[in-house]
Design a protein around this nucleic acid. Structure first.
Lengths: 210, 210
DNA sequence: TTGCTATTTGAACGCCTGTTCAGTTAGCTT
DNA sequence: AAGCTAACTGAACAGGCGTTCAAATAGCAA
């Protein structure tokens, strides 16, 4: 046997990416072998090398595409939003949760497998990650400048908000007690409080952190 | 050559744990070989099996000890705290940041290598993790009950707070622009706002999430 | 000095790894 | 029917994997 009946390069390439994403997310890049991926795709390991130069590139492309889609999706989303910083922030929260819940595998890989990238590939992904954090950071600064927010440090706040939002994908199961809408609302409550700092107890206490 | 001069089993056992922790954190469990660990310790691979039954146990013990120390340290900390829920929460925030920043490797492993545990080992670690989340959850519920906090969902809030606090260890470098004390204060500001929900804008808006 | 135990080596086990490549076939074009 | 290309197989390569174990040595007790 050599070529299989009904074989199609484009389809195999797609399935390779899909299988790699699934397996990397489940078992980790280092723990998954090319033969394992090949089995999932339904071909022999050698055939994979028609569609990727090597295993490392496979990992990098999954992450790189994820970051591109994330940045592109947010730019598209933001284009349709008029309003103050709070309106933008609320949009961001909803967007981030919703986007990531539909891509559990990619997000998992993007956070867990950074250390398995070569230094050059790591630098590329890291730059895109920083760009995304910066987009939230801009909103926070705008809110601080307009007096709407009262954040001590917008950079740390962007880290904190992204970390808590991304954390949703570690426990969310589609069949849980809460719907996606409810989760969005709950996180919105928390983020609104977080950026307003202090709340009822020491409302408007100032911007310094001491 | 066989036994080495000055050799000491207790010391080798300690160095094995230390080397495994360091390497697992840096490269990931699956990517690190027993020979690599042995080189770090300064012995041949075979010698490691006097101090661990296998590689999996090595990983499990690192995580298990970490969770035990975390739970024990927090219990000790809480014992000395009198005050309302806000006082306890502030203590928790400081404690969590401080504890984890001193153990970057262990925390990294505990979050990244869960999927490399056998199902039985995973269940044991997961139980301890839930216990820790529950300790924060108790504080949040106490605060909600006393009217001090205005959280929509204490369970989700405990996830969110732990996620944002733990996130610190992903970017913290001891030589950064902020001191540990400053970081604690900034996160305290955010957490206070988060639990107070809505802040100056809609202070005391209620507990329902809609 | 002899004996005993703790500690380690170094080789070996069978199996798996990422990657390459000559050879084979499916399906289309001429 | 012949030729061509896209798609794939299956074997091979050199090396690494976790783990085991007989043999050897260090340091102490008798």
């Amino acid at each position: 046997m050599a070529r299989k009946s009904g074989s199609d390069g484009k389809k195999t390439a797609r399935e390779l990416r899909a299988a790699a994403t699934r397996l990397f997310a489940k078992f980790g890049y280092a723990a998954v072998s090319m033969r394992q991926i090949a089995t999932e795709v339904g071909v022999q390991a050698g055939a994979l090398y028609l569609y990727t130069p090597d295993k490392q590139t496979l990992l990098f492309q999954i992450m790189d595409r994820h970051m591109d889609e994330l940045l592109e999706a947010w730019r598209a989303e933001l284009a349709g939003v008029a309003g103050d910083a709070m309106a933008k922030l609320e949009h961001f929260v909803r967007f981030h949760i919703r986007f990531h819940l539909n891509r559990g595998d990619e997000i998992f890989i993007s956070y867990m497998e950074l250390r398995n990238l070569t230094p050059e590939n790591f630098a590329l992904i890291e730059a895109k990650r920083r760009a995304y954090e910066g987009l939230l950071g801009d909103i926070l600064q705008e809110g601080n400048a307009s007096g709407r927010f009262a954040l001590c440090d917008t950079k740390l706040s962007s880290y904190a908000i992204i970390a808590m939002l991304t954390g949703v994908s570690t426990w969310y199961k589609g069949d849980g007690r809460l719907s996606l809408d409810q989760i969005e609302e709950i996180y919105l409550c928390m983020v609104r409080g977080l950026v307003s700092q202090g709340g009822p107890i020491s409302a408007g206490a100032g911007k310094g952190f001491m």
